[in-house]
């Protein structure tokens, strides 16, 4: 049963998630494209990460005590920039530059371009092995920060993901938390057709990880999963498998034929924003 403080936290995070969705749609409208289906689906996870779970200083993105968030799936940059804006690391007016020449917000995330972007993702399957090195480094320095590696379910196809899964367990990396967005969509179609990965929880558990699988659009569940992953005493790496719905929050995009790259027609950007605004207005 929810306590009043839980309810307050959920309402606060729902507001953050709404704003992250909104920023992502605004960026998508700038370019007339972008991975907005994924952004809408993953916004709740990003809201909990940046507005509840992680330690960071918005005005000092390289603060040594920060929790590291690695965007392995570089094409989720549109979602991530929205979260960085909501976290106060990137100014809101910069979203108009998304994907433009010489912008700090390129279409695929790169560490050398954007404050708060820890790695250059996009060559999928690289985030988790980098996270292993960072977690080893933090532990050696005695720095208690967590390393979060955020990845897509398509990256489960990459052998390097499993090299890193073995390595993280072997080295007992209790400061490593892996977040997997399971929307079951890859470039060539549903993941189950491209390269089936189930039973996924069993796979990670057999690799020596602490595993949770939750509905990534159920805020209380997402909050609880982050809290559990951070508070676990055992010296083992933790993974949270988030089942998410692409287009979440905009019913006509939720219902649209599922593709890696959801089509959005020009007038639909504003319609989607209006739907989000109405729903959030009603919830307040």
């Amino acid at each position: 049963m929810n306590t009043p403080s839980d309810t307050g936290l959920q309402a606060k995070l729902a507001e953050h998630a709404y704003r992250i969705r909104r920023f992502a749609l605004q960026m998508g409208e700038v370019q007339g494209q972008g991975y907005v289906g994924q952004a809408l689906g993953y916004a709740d996870v990003l809201a909990v990460a940046y507005c509840h779970a992680m330690s960071f200083r918005p005005d000092d993105p390289e603060w040594q005590g920060r929790d590291r968030f690695l965007l392995s799936h570089g094409h989720y940059a549109i979602a991530f920039y929205a979260a960085l804006i909501e976290a106060g690391i990137i100014p809101e007016d910069e979203l108009e530059s998304y994907g433009s020449d010489d912008s700090r917000l390129p279409m695929s995330g790169m560490a050398t371009y954007t404050p708060g972007m820890e790695i250059s993702g996009g060559s999928l399957g690289q985030g988790l092995p980098i996270a292993v090195g960072m977690a080893l480094g933090l532990r050696l320095k005695g720095n208690p920060a967590f390393v979060y590696n955020s990845m897509s379910d398509g990256e489960l196809d990459e052998g390097s993901t499993w090299e890193a899964a073995m390595g993280a367990a072997h080295h007992g990396l209790g400061n490593l938390i892996c977040l997997v967005d399971i929307n079951n969509q890859q470039a060539d179609g549903p993941s189950s057709k491209v390269m089936g990965f189930e039973p996924l929880a069993d796979k990670w558990a057999s690799f020596g990880w602490h595993v949770q699988r939750v509905d990534g659009n159920d805020l209380p569940a997402v909050i609880a999963a982050f809290d559990t992953a951070r508070q676990l005493a055992e010296a083992k790496p933790r993974v949270i498998l988030f089942d998410t719905l692409m287009g979440k929050g905009v019913p006509f995009l939720e219902a649209r034929e599922k593709n890696h790259f959801i089509r959005v027609d020009p007038p639909e950007w504003q319609q989607a924003l209006d739907i989000l605004d109405q729903a959030q207005g009603a919830a307040r």
């Binding site: 092995p129 980098i130 292993v132 090195g133 960072m134 480094g137 890193a164 390595g167």
Partner: peptide, 18 residues
């Protein structure tokens, strides 16, 4: 371990931590 992709990426990760 016998995992060269992990070797290189983890080396990169440690370099990022100084």
């Amino acid at each position: 371990g016998m995992a060269e992709q992990l070797l290189m990426a983890a080396a990169g990760g440690m370099a990022k931590e100084g």
